[in-house]
Amino acid sequence: MKMTQTKIDQMSGILFLLFGIIIWIYTRNFPDLEEGYPGPALFPRLIGSGFILGGIILVITPFISSKVTDDSDEKSHFSLLNLGKLVIGLFITGLYPFIQPYLGFIGSISLIGFAIGFLLNVKPWLAALVALSCTLIVYFLFTYLLGVPL
């Protein structure tokens, strides 16, 4: 998949435009202040309008400016495998709130550190070592030196 900076800009412009419209739709049921003045909805709507405006400018800039922006910068290294790894990485980190109540701080954090190291192609023993020592240092630092319970 090959993408130039201009195309990315235009695409994100469209996304932000849609996002702004969604905010407007979402805030339509927010209550007003007494005497009909705008209340909780005012600020999100202003921001939404900002998105819509910014999005439109992003989309149309390439059409109106004659100057060719640096299209040489191609961002092409997209791969499904890497994206999969990214999702796994997110998944592993996201497990923390689930496993922490059962495994405690030391167990869950060092497991996640180890798994992330594994994803980053660190040798297993090294990943385990680093994850474990880092966890222990953090634990002792927080609990005994700084007095922050974990």
């Binding site: 495994l103 405690g104 497991l111 023993w125």
Partner: peptide, 18 residues
């Protein structure tokens, strides 16, 4: 070997930290 490391290192900790 990987699995071995995993078990050898983490299982005792998990028990200790419960």
């Amino acid at each position: 070997r990987t699995l071995f490391y995993l078990f050898a290192i983490f299982i005792p900790i998990i028990f200790l930290s419960c």
